[in-house]
Every structure is written in structure tokens, then in C-alpha cells.
Design a protein around this nucleic acid. Structure first.
Lengths: 189, 189
DNA sequence: GTCTATATCAGGATAGAC
DNA sequence: GTCTATCCTGATATAGAC
């Protein structure tokens, strides 16, 4: 699975070759087919693996850093996707590929939509911690804008149209703006 | 070229089959190869065609609607990408595919980065018309955020994670927010 | 479980006639 | 310019031995 994640990060979901994956794992292609029904099965398992791993590093901060306030946690959650580490690169790349593939493959859409909803919801909760008086609708809209922006910036970064440092700055300023917006729409007590 | 644009919208850049393109155009594959060197040549020509067409419908508003104020023009330019017409769908799909492919194909990056810069610059200019006192840096940053958000929302829409109407609402509210932000950072005279 | 073939097939590209 | 026929490569998937 780790090898598969690396291959997807290197070649994309649609560029994944079973032979290359086998080489990456140091086994024969036949063994891959022994463990997975077919190419689609490999993909399914790998994307699940990647999502699990992403979920892990998204939530493991919770108990570990009690000193982090809600806003800090929000920033960290969103900026996490804009980092040049192998894990994040793999996850973001796979995520982008999944979305791009879903445009042409309806089978992928449901999983993707669900995962997106979960993420938007998480960010919405964090925004709610910072601004407890904001309406649910306002929080959801802000979360939707912020997460969509992360995806947009991430794909610009990965496709070489934007420097990582700039992407992070733009994201940070967007967070500030959204929080200001929330505090104006329903001022805190 | 129109047939190619349709096929790309249906199958993606990486899913384009020369045979399907030939069928779409009602000719043989051999004739396609008579006109284009190879598959890459087909792709190059088609993406150029699509970009030209997109450029056309982006700018043809200028002389036609003198009544449209700067803000209206800004909104129209950005919301244009979020419409369910064949042209826009084709353009947005191709654009998303191009970006997704560029992650794995360095050859595509330069063209893409250039086109992105042009677009960001255009939006920056429009923002400047609305807020002539804002600094160039602030305008560019806002344009970068807004265009990245359009891309993020567009790919969510095309991949079935977001309703078009919602995407448009989110985009409209983001424009409002960015304009407010600009007016605060350097208040108008 | 794991390997070495190998069947099979799709799709890019070309030859050569008209 | 346009077609039919076909070559050829690369990639999925399987058979069968160990």
C-alpha cells in the first residue's frame, strides 16, 4: 500500500502501472493479482489506505497539543495540506487525482463527495469553536470556501503554477479574512 | 477541433482515444494522423483551440456592454466559469484536466503557469478598477485567491461534490468579502 | 505465497491504394 | 485528402510450476 501510494504520487491514479507497482514493492505482478482482484481493486484499496492515513495525521493533534487554541488548530488543519513532505505530497496528489478522475468516472463520485463533506464539516466545527455565535449556515459556507481554496491552491502548487510559500501565505490570509467576516456577521458577545 | 474539445470534455485529456476522436469527426484515424504529427500534437492543438475560445468569451464583453460597471464585470468574469453550458463545461473540464496532467507531466507546466498568470493578472486589473487605491500586492493576492477558489469550486462541481448553484453563491460571497477586505486595507478617498 | 512465462487486447501509428 | 488494413508496443490479467 505504501508503495502504491508512492507510485500514484509519481504517476497519478490513471498512470499507475501494475508492473511498476510490483517493482516498487519488489514482487511480481502475479502476486499483486493474487492479493487484489484487478487493477480497480488495487486502486480502491490504495485510495482507502491514503484516506485513512490522511485522517490519521489530521486528528492526531487533538489530544497531543492542549496548548493549541481553536484558531491555531484551524490554521494548522488547513495549512497541513500545503507542506512539502512525502506524506502530504502523496495525499494531496492522490486527492487531486481522485477528484480529476471523478469528473469522468461516476463510480468514484460518491466516496469523494462523502469525504469532502466530512472535511468541510470538520473545518466548520473548528470555525465554530473560534466563533461560537456564528450561524451554522455561515460556518458551513466559510468552511466550504476555505477547503475549496486549499484544493485550488494545492493543485496550483503541485502543477507548478504557484510557489508553496505563496500558497501558504494566501491560505493564511484567507483564513484571517473569513474569521473577520464571521465576527462581523454576528459579533461575539 | 470542436470534436476534440467534446471528446476531452467526455473522457479527459488522458482518456482521449484517437479512434474516438476520429469517429466524433466522422473520419478515419489515418486522416487524423495526416493532419497532426501524433497524439501529443492533437492535444497541443486542441488545448490551444480551447484556450483561444475561452479567451474569446472572456473578453468579448468589453465593448459590448458599456453599462456594466467594474464590479459587475468582475463578477461576471469569475462566475462565467461556473455555468452549465457546453462551452464552459468543455473549457473548465479541459482546464482541470490540464492542471491534473501537469502534476505528472512537466512539459505542460510552463504553458499552464503562463495562462494562469494571465488570468490572475486580468482579475487583478478588474479588482484595481473597483478599488483604485489598493496596493498592487493586495490586488494580486486577492486575484490569486479568487481565481484559485474558482478552480477549486469548479472541480468540486464537475466532480459532483457540489451543486452548481451553491458554487456560484460561494463564489459571489467570496468576491464580496475580498472587495470589503480591499476597501478596509486602504480606504477609498 | 510467489515466481516465470504467456495469453490477450487495446490503442497509437503507418503502409499503400484510391 | 481520405480510406482500409494492419503492424506493433505496452499493459492487464492468467496458467501452471514451485
Amino acid at each position: 500500500m505504501e508503495g502504491a501510494a508512492r507510485v500514484i504520487a509519481r504517476r497519478g491514479v490513471r498512470g499507475l502501472r501494475v508492473e511498476e507497482l510490483a517493482a516498487e514493492a519488489g514482487v511480481s505482478t502475479a502476486l499483486i493479482y493474487y492479493h487484489f482482484k484487478d487493477r480497480a481493486g488495487i486502486l480502491r484499496a490504495t485510495l482507502e489506505f491514503i484516506n485513512d492515513r490522511a485522517g490519521r495525521y489530521t486528528t492526531e493533534r487533538d489530544p497531543a497539543r492542549p496548548g493549541l487554541d481553536a484558531r491555531g488548530e484551524l490554521e494548522q488543519t488547513l495549512l497541513l495540506e500545503l507542506q512539502d513532505t512525502p506524506d502530504v505530497r502523496e495525499t494531496s496528489t492522490a486527492w487531486g487525482e481522485l477528484r480529476a478522475s471523478a469528473v469522468f468516472d461516476p463510480d468514484l463520485r460518491e466516496d469523494l463527495a462523502r469525504a469532502t463533506r466530512v472535511w468541510v464539516h470538520e473545518v466548520g466545527e473548528l470555525l465554530g469553536l473560534v466563533h461560537p455565535m456564528a450561524s451554522a449556515a455561515a460556518l458551513t459556507a466559510a468552511a466550504e470556501r476555505l477547503t475549496a481554496l486549499v484544493e485550488g491552491l494545492s493543485s496550483r502548487w503541485l502543477s507548478g503554477s504557484l510557489e508553496l510559500a505563496q500558497a501558504r501565505e494566501l491560505m493564511a490570509s484567507a483564513i484571517t479574512t473569513e474569521l473577520e467576516r464571521l465576527s462581523r456577521s454576528r459579533p461575539p458577545v
